[in-house]
Amino acid sequence: MRKEQIPDFIEEIIATGCPITAVGHDIYVFAEIDAPEEDVDRIGAEVQAICDRYGARDHLQLEIVAHLRSLGRFYDLKAETLH
Rank of each mutant, 00 (worst) to 15 (best):
Met1Gln: 05
Lys3Val: 02
Lys3Cys: 14
Lys3Leu: 15
Glu4Lys: 05
Gln5Arg: 11
Pro7Gln: 14
Asp8His: 10
Phe9Cys: 00
Ile10Cys: 00
Glu11Ser: 10
Glu11Trp: 06
Glu12Lys: 06
Ile13Trp: 01
Ile13Ser: 03
Ile14Glu: 03
Ile14Val: 12
Ile14Asp: 07
Ile14Asn: 03
Ala15Pro: 03
Ala15Met: 02
Thr16His: 08
Gly17Thr: 02
Gly17His: 05
Cys18His: 01
Cys18Leu: 08
Cys18Thr: 04
Cys18Trp: 04
Pro19Trp: 03
Pro19Asn: 12
Ile20Gly: 08
Ile20Thr: 03
Thr21Phe: 00
Ala22Phe: 12
Ala22Met: 07
Val23Gln: 01
Val23Asp: 09
Val23Pro: 03
His25Gly: 12
His25Ile: 09
Asp26Phe: 01
Asp26Ala: 09
Asp26Gln: 03
Ile27Thr: 13
Ile27Trp: 04
Ile27Glu: 12
Tyr28Val: 03
Tyr28Gly: 01
Val29Asp: 07
Val29Thr: 08
Val29Cys: 05
Phe30Met: 15
Ala31Lys: 09
Ala31Asp: 14
Ala31Thr: 15
Glu32Lys: 06
Ile33Asn: 05
Ile33Val: 15
Ile33Gln: 14
Ile33Glu: 07
Ala35Tyr: 00
Pro36Gln: 11
Pro36Asn: 06
Pro36Gly: 03
Glu37Trp: 06
Glu37His: 04
Glu38Ala: 15
Asp39Met: 09
Asp39Pro: 02
Asp39His: 11
Val40Pro: 00
Asp41Thr: 09
Asp41Arg: 11
Ile43Ser: 05
Glu46Trp: 01
Val47Met: 04
Ala49Leu: 01
Ile50Leu: 02
Ile50Tyr: 11
Ile50Arg: 06
Cys51Val: 14
Cys51Leu: 08
Cys51His: 10
Cys51Lys: 14
Asp52His: 11
Asp52Gly: 03
Tyr54Met: 13
Tyr54Arg: 07
Gly55Ile: 08
Gly55Ala: 08
Ala56Met: 04
Ala56Trp: 15
Arg57Asn: 14
His59Leu: 09
His59Trp: 13
His59Glu: 12
Leu60Thr: 11
Leu60His: 06
Leu60Pro: 06
Leu60Phe: 13
Gln61Glu: 14
Leu62Ala: 08
Glu63Lys: 04
Ile64Glu: 02
His67Cys: 03
Leu68Ile: 05
Ser70Ala: 11
Ser70Gln: 12
Leu71Gly: 03
Leu71Pro: 00
Arg73Asp: 03
Arg73Ile: 02
Arg73Val: 05
Phe74Gly: 00
Phe74Val: 08
Phe74Tyr: 14
Tyr75Ile: 15
Leu77Arg: 15
Lys78His: 15
Ala79Pro: 06
Ala79Ser: 14
Ala79Asn: 13
Ala79Gly: 13
Glu80Arg: 12
Glu80Phe: 10
Thr81Pro: 04
Leu82Met: 10
